[in-house]
Nucleic acid binder design. Structure first.
Lengths: 211, 211
DNA sequence: TAGATTGTTAATCGATTAACAATC
DNA sequence: TAGATTGTTAATCGATTAACAATC
């Protein structure tokens, strides 16, 4: 029951389960079996049961899973619904989009401050963009959980170092580099370039479909 | 030598190889061994050689790989450097960021048109945003390779259907749904919500590191 | 030639799927 | 109770790693 050695493959599927369960719940459906989940997610029923059983026995023989209950368990496992304090570094196109993207705020993610190298020119009436030089000091006096890196790649590792030094627990990285971090800081990267290249690979290799 | 049954795991690593090789090349380095690549990528030398050998024999015993040559081969395999015609649907925060993001244009990706439900209010002097109602007709008279979906989730599947019908070869999806597509259209999704949830999972499970 | 490093086969490891007893 | 569906073990499948002969 105590979770240990849970593979990355399993963990990456948890948010997907969560998402599908939320949409099932919105439809007012009360219970769901692994077989039904299998049909809508495209994963096997066996895998779904295996995955969930890494974390506990959430179902009931002959019945399936209570949707609301399972959402609750997954929320706890993933850590959705907690309050997270964010800082955003890099207020260019992507940084801007992430800052505006309200879905995350509704979930409890809150921006404490925004930093950029060109702070002056980016600030306006609605937002005070700070100079990235101030980041280190800011982290000394403010508890921050997650740093979002949306800088050019040249700056990314330096920013990551400051964030780690400043005690963040996680880094959400949008720059196209693999960051090195210290003392248990968690990295999650969104590599848009790699995603696009994967798409073009398949577009150029029609005979190679695995699906 | 003929590529077949190449697993998704292998394919997902190709853009990473490409990225690292580009940065090696920028440093003026001429040759690289799988052992050296192993050290900078964190993958095993054995895996790197395995992966590359799915596509051909690009190395030389006792020497390693010629950096420029290998970049050339990977470009061909991935399909980087070709011209791709894009349409963007959804000109909100994320759509806006993607449209502005110049890196892709430099690589040969070119926006043919941008669509949104609120086309009128989004157009300005620099960009003519079209009403999404016109998408279907546009695709009839313009060859488009890739459709980028950056709409709210409620609209995503409908847009995907129109894109498939209109003959695009690939869809780059940023909405938080898994799209169903027909006749060999390739889907690549960037699920920001899942990425963020994966991050928070690990932040809440410090004892569970696999790395 | 000697040293280095590939390409490739074999061994290991891990993840997925199948099967079924337990039980609601 | 009978039917359904879980939790869990065992079997299969696939991916990664190790090893080494081939060869530059």
């Amino acid at each position: 029951m105590a979770k240990q050695n849970i593979s990355l493959s399993v963990i990456k599927r948890l948010p997907k389960y969560y998402r599908y369960l939320e949409s099932i719940n919105e439809k007012g459906i009360i219970r769901v079996s692994s077989k039904e989940l299998s049909e809508i997610t495209g994963l096997t029923a066996s895998q779904i049961r295996q995955d969930l059983n890494h974390f506990g026995c959430f179902g009931q023989q002959g019945y399936g899973y209570n949707v609301k209950e399972l959402i609750g368990e997954l929320s706890k496992i993933i850590g959705v619904g907690k309050d997270y304090k964010l800082v955003l570094i890099g207020y260019g196109n992507i940084g801007h989009a992430l800052y505006q993207y309200m879905s995350f705020r509704d979930l409890g993610y809150e921006f404490e401050a925004v930093f950029d190298k060109e702070a002056k020119s980016l600030s306006d009436g609605n937002l005070d963009v700070r100079d990235v030089e101030e980041l280190s000091d800011f982290l000394k006096t403010n508890k921050v959980d997650i740093g979002i890196i949306a800088t050019p790649k040249q700056a990314a590792q330096d920013v990551a170092d400051i964030l780690c030094e400043g005690g963040v627990k996680g880094i959400w990285n949008f720059s196209p580099v693999d960051l090195k971090v210290s003392n248990g800081v968690v990295i999650e990267s969104v590599h848009l370039d790699e995603s696009l290249f994967t798409l073009t690979y398949f577009m150029n290799s029609p005979e190679d479909f695995i699906f």
